[in-house]
Amino acid sequence: MTFPLFALMLCVFGVGTSEYVIAGILPGLSSDLGVDIPAAGMLVTAYALGVVIGGPIVTIATARIQRKTLMLLLMAVFIAGNVLAAVAPDYWVIVAARVLAALVHSTFVAVGIMLAVNMVPEGQSGTAVAKVSLGLNLATVLGVPLGTFIGEQYGWRATFWAVAGITTAATLLVAAVVRPAEATGGGAATELKVLGNRRVQVAIVMTVLGSAGFGTVFTYIAPLLTDVTNFSTTTVAVLLIVFGVGSVFGTMLGGKLADRSLMPALCGLLAALTVVLLLFGAAAPVQVVAAVLVFVFGAASFSIIPGLQARILTAAAGAPTLALAVNISAFQLANAGGSWLGGQVLDTAGVRWTTVAGAAVTVLGLALGLLELARDRRARAGEAPAATGSTTPTATVG
């Protein structure tokens, strides 16, 4: 990984840690601010809503700003949000702080992806996306446990100060080593027009379906492993780290496969995730097999992310920033929808059946991907008579 890509990945690591670590510091935060756990848990909902609402609005409003300059501005707002959270005198101020940080989340990640893609040779966009997205994986594996530890030792405010410090260092590194890149497309009007592209719309729906299948199961993975597999809570904590390691492996593999052959790879990975979810449910009572499948589940779930983002890049060529931001917001909606679906299944049929529900949602994403793959191949076949030169097909199907 080059130093500029590392700088972008470190920014994403800070953003991901800030988003996820709230779960680890909720007890101390709720006690200190005098609110109950459900009220404190609304900070997660507030952040998600901020991401979903803020992504399109902020992206449209900043469409003509030079990309590196925009990223530095977005990171400054994000840092301010975490500093405000660290000094918040009451519950409602910290809610406002979380929303402030969330408003720039989608646009920041989208711009980071665009800057990363500009740094690599043509045909390596999937790998570039994977390297930037690695920051989210590391946030889960390293950032959240470390942030939780800091919160337990020094208080929840120290966690927000730590996140602000990491993101400040990462922002300074971006300022020093990332080369400028002009805004793509023709401004807000062009970006909005891209959202009317059928291929972009389908790619966003694929993101929702593929990610919702993951969310349906992962939200309830702890009760699945304790109640069905009979692991202790301590073992489950270790297995969540194993899941995180699998996610790192899957992200990098998914990026490489997306560069080699985008839509065939994406369809294959969605099929693999469907199978893994079904196997997870079937083998959940067998501890050794379930432990292995936790790693495989992490790998399969995150392997689809580079391909989903790369599909947006190819479908929205010329003005991809807003489409990417909306797609990032779609991940949030998918996780929320998956959590809701899993909760309904858990209440009516039991936690083990969340894996079947997750597989059913994922297979819808697979079906949509196969339809797009067939459409792409028909389109290329129709263009073939007009082509000149070699008839060897290219490796990547966009």
Rank of each mutant, 00 (worst) to 15 (best):
F13V: 10
S18G: 09
E19A: 06
G24P: 06
G24D: 14
S31H: 13
A40V: 05
A46F: 08
Y47S: 05
A48C: 05
V51Q: 01
I53S: 09
G55N: 05
P56S: 07
T59S: 13
I65M: 12
K68R: 15
M71K: 00
L73A: 11
L73V: 08
L74N: 08
A80M: 02
G81A: 08
L84I: 07
A85Q: 02
A97D: 09
R98S: 02
V99T: 05
S106T: 04
A110W: 03
V111F: 02
M114T: 10
V117G: 02
N118T: 14
N118Y: 11
M119E: 13
G126P: 02
S133L: 14
G135R: 04
T148Q: 05
E152L: 14
R157E: 12
A158E: 13
A170G: 11
V174S: 02
A176L: 15
A188V: 09
L192I: 11
V194P: 06
A203S: 13
S211C: 14
A222W: 09
N230F: 01
A237S: 15
V242E: 10
P264H: 01
A265W: 14
C267R: 10
L277R: 05
F280N: 00
A282R: 10
Q287H: 12
V289L: 07
I305F: 04
P306I: 13
R311S: 11
R311P: 01
I312S: 00
I312P: 02
L313R: 04
L313K: 01
A315E: 12
L324M: 09
S329N: 07
N335A: 11
A336I: 15
S339A: 13
G342C: 06
D347S: 13
V351S: 00
G358A: 12
A359F: 03
T362S: 12
L368F: 11
L370G: 03
L370C: 07
G389L: 07
T391A: 15
T396E: 01
V397A: 11
